[in-house]
């Protein structure tokens, strides 16, 4: 998905008006291709960071769909966020393999370090803390994922060093 990539790196510099314009262009391309709502939402989230209600309304209009349908989709999928997320998203895998190898201890330690619970964002806006269904690295359990990077065989003591790499 090349659009998503370009967006995350260039968009910080863009203002809202430019972002809306970009989204409108993309929606024009996608509007006539069947079943593309989820793709548009992925792109919109990459541009704006999250999908608050007013943005959902804008997308509904652009795609010629009722708002209820757009909201229904946004709330169904856990990858879509309606509130701003932190700059980085930490996902702790709680699949069975990670659980067996100590995933729960990772959660407890992260809560201590970040000072927030699962589903919340740190006060400085740096990290959003989530749990994930299996992220497919069970051979290396327990794992956590920060943005697109997977960290393997994580021990609670290693967490502070890992987080220090992000700012």
């Amino acid at each position: 998905m090349p659009e998503m990539k370009n967006c995350t790196c260039s968009c910080a510099k863009e203002n809202d008006e430019q972002k809306y314009k970009k989204l409108a262009e993309l929606m024009k391309q996608y509007k006539n291709s069947e079943g593309s709502l989820i793709q548009v939402l992925h792109i919109a989230q990459a541009i704006f960071g999250c999908l608050p209600l007013e943005l959902q309304r804008y997308i509904a209009q652009g795609m010629g769909k009722p708002l209820s349908e757009v909201s229904g989709v946004v709330t169904f999928y856990s990858f879509f966020a309606t509130r701003p997320r932190g700059k980085h998203v930490i996902r702790v895998c709680l699949g069975t393999a990670c659980y067996v190898r100590g995933g729960k201890k990772i959660i407890t330690r992260l809560e201590e370090i970040l000072g927030v619970g699962v589903g919340e964002t740190t006060k400085d806006g740096l990290f959003t803390f989530e749990v994930a269904r299996c992220i497919g690295a069970c051979g290396l359990a327990p794992v956590i994922m920060i943005d697109d990077m997977v960290y393997k065989q994580v021990k609670p003591e290693k967490l502070e060093n890992i987080l220090a790499q992000y700012n």
Binding site: M1, I38, Q39, L41, H42, F76, Y77, S78, F79, R133
Partner: peptide, 9 residues
């Protein structure tokens, strides 16, 4: 075409 899911079991 590739379609990307959005995190739902």
């Amino acid at each position: 075409e590739i379609r990307i899911g959005a995190g739902a079991f």
